[in-house]
Design a protein around this nucleic acid. Structure first.
Lengths: 235, 235
DNA sequence: CTCGGTTTGTTCTCGCGTTCACAAACTCCT
DNA sequence: AGGAGTTTGTGAACGCGAGAACAAACCGAG
């Protein structure tokens, strides 16, 4: 996207690899909790649900943290990946839109345990300002800028209804937030330099529906037309 | 993945295109509600947040539904995409795990309006069996197979804690479900022929954190080292 | 010290997805 | 009717990611 200066550390890591690093991190945490001190790329790959060649290639972008003939030290690799992702320190996060989904997000324990700290919950509806969710009180949306500056918030989560999302995003960007996780089913327009990641429940379901329909049509087609490829499907 | 018989309709559509079709569908719905009868690929592309070349190529996999020199009929294209995805009919869906996230999913209106119908909410915890969420009463997890057969459920949603997810998935597969949307932060193992899509909140945040860290390091690196590439970033 | 076994890190090849660029086709105006 | 202006659909080039295969490096036994 933008040119990077390959200054010292942190060479260019492919986007596809970046998206898998958190998966490896979680798998390593699981191995660590199970008492494993060392693991091979094969072990870690199966725990992460990828094949070992891809895993080794991904890790090679970070550096040579393994030992040939032995494998990887679980704790050491875990720390290196966490450092590369940037979750060795805590990231302050604000959540805007405390409806059903906002409640769920605020109560989600996975944030806290994985390097994120919810410092504020915001909602435009005054009726929600009396609520306290997960130990944090809901404050007016107009407090956004003050909170961002006070806590140095760099990441914002949008869980509002779709019509409000663009406005919320604009205010977030104006307040200095440069990374947005958007749960509202809308395409957000943001200036360059701001990252947006979208999580869209109905889109995921529709993708499943497409494949489901294909399976149904494929079965019917195989039955109706000539013999096709069979899928082995255990009970 | 598996061989398909290119029997009659529904040629092979690339996975990347399939993932974008729901976005186009939503953009078309927006245009339709705004009273637009016809749109160019440029219009639809900006509404969907992609460039027009990609949009046209994507649509070309479905067929030639546009008119050169004119554009696309919004309603017609909308129906064609909906038919291709398979959301012209309703898909019955079960949600397992009615915690915070399960509540939010059950109440999410976007499912209903986009071709999905929540036919059952299941939870292993007997204390939740008295609840009624979004007009549907929570039933024991052991009812899964009966419900799947009764309603012909093909899509299951898992919103349980991570340790329970694999067991739930196993029961879903055993009951005949072949498409799973997994919100639990775990890698699911399923037999071939079963599609799993994963939505992982903390992974998304970690990806944002990585880029955020890069931005911070990049700015510091540019300041410390020699002059690098500047990013134009409006206020 | 040497040799066999094991596992990483890397190179190479292949296929998919994105983007560009342009011909084909349609409308509208004269 | 004809030509200018638009817009679609697609062929071709290009870059990225996945997977296979192998050389380099490490451990341990004898």
């Amino acid at each position: 996207m933008t040119e990077r200066t390959p200054s010292e550390a942190s060479r260019d890591i492919p986007e596809a690899t970046v998206a898998r690093l958190p998966v490896y991190l979680r798998a390593l945490t699981g191995l660590s909790e199970a008492g494993t001190a060392t693991c091979s790329s094969e072990d870690l790959a199966t725990a992460a649900g990828v094949n070992s060649a891809k895993l080794r290639k991904d890790l090679s972008y970070l550096g040579s943290y393994g030992t040939r003939g032995v494998g990887y030290d679980v704790e050491y690799l875990r720390y290196q990946i966490a450092r590369e992702i940037g979750v060795t320190q805590d990231w302050p996060v604000v959540i805007v839109g405390i409806g059903n989904l906002g409640h769920a997000l605020a109560n989600f324990s996975g944030f806290r345990s994985r390097g994120f700290r919810v410092v504020a919950l915001l909602d435009a509806d005054p009726r929600r300002h009396q609520e306290v969710v997960a130990g944090v009180d809901v404050r007016p949306f107009s407090d956004l800028e003050a909170i961002v500056h006070e806590h140095g918030v760099a990441i914002g989560v949008i869980s509002t209804p779709a019509p409000a999302a663009q406005d919320v995003a604009d205010h977030m960007v104006a307040a200095g937030i440069r990374s947005i996780l958007n749960f509202a089913p809308t395409v957000l327009a943001v200036p360059p330099g701001v990252d947006v990641r979208k999580v869209d429940l109905s889109i995921e379901l529709q993708i499943l529906a497409y494949h489901e329909q294909r399976k149904a049509l494929g079965a019917a087609g195989v039955a109706a037309a000539s013999e096709g490829a069979l899928e082995g499907r255990p009970a």
